[in-house]
Simulated assay, not measured.
Amino acid sequence: MRLLLTVLLILSTAAPPAAPARFGWPLAGTPTVVRRFDPPPEPWLPGHRGVDLAGSSGEIVRAAGDGQVVFAGPLAGRGVISVAHADGVRTTYEPVTPTTTAGQTIRRGEPIGRLGPGHPGCSADEACLHWGARRGETYLDPLSLLGLGRVRLKPLRSAAAPAARPPAAAHPRRSHRRSRRRAAAHRSPTD
Rank of each mutant, 00 (worst) to 15 (best):
H130G: 01
R178E: 13
S56V: 15
R173Q: 12
H85A: 14
H119T: 03
R177Y: 13
V69R: 04
V7D: 04
A160L: 11
H186D: 09
L75F: 11
I81W: 08
H130L: 13
V7K: 00
R114Y: 07
W44A: 02
A84Y: 00
Q68P: 01
P189Q: 02
R2A: 15
S179V: 14
G109I: 04
R62F: 07
R157W: 05
G116P: 05
P189V: 02
R165F: 08
G77N: 06
L4Y: 11
V151M: 12
R49V: 04
S56M: 11
R157L: 13
D66K: 05
P39V: 03
T91M: 04
L145K: 09
S144D: 14
P111V: 13
R90Y: 01
H119C: 02
R107Y: 06
G73M: 07
F23T: 08
P20S: 11
F37Y: 15
L11T: 12
H176D: 13
A168Y: 06
G88W: 07
T190G: 06
L8Q: 10
P167V: 12
P26Q: 07
A76Y: 02
L146E: 11
A133H: 06
T32K: 14
L156W: 09
T32W: 11
G79W: 02
G24I: 11
P162D: 03
G77F: 10
G65H: 10
G77W: 11
A63T: 09
D125C: 09
Q68T: 15
I10F: 07
P41C: 05
A18Q: 14
L140F: 07
A183S: 15
P20Q: 12
T105C: 01
D87P: 11
A72D: 02
R49G: 00
P162W: 00
W25K: 07
L146N: 11
H186N: 04
S179G: 07
T91N: 04
A21K: 15
V80C: 02
R36M: 00
R152A: 12
D52A: 01
R62G: 01
F71T: 06
S179M: 12
R165D: 09
P43M: 01
S158M: 03
P111T: 13
R152C: 03
L4N: 09
V61D: 05
R62L: 15
S12R: 07
R78T: 10
L145F: 10
R114N: 12
L75G: 01
S57F: 02
E59W: 03
E94Q: 13
E126H: 13
S82I: 10
I112S: 05
G109D: 06
S123D: 15
A63K: 07
V96M: 05
R177K: 06
V34C: 00
W25R: 09
D38E: 11
F37S: 07
L146Y: 11
F71L: 10
L115R: 06
R152V: 14
P16D: 01
A72E: 02
A86T: 05
L8R: 08
A163Q: 05
G136E: 00
T91Q: 01
R36K: 04
G147T: 10
D125Q: 13
G136F: 04
P172S: 05
V7S: 01
H85N: 12
V80P: 04
P17A: 14
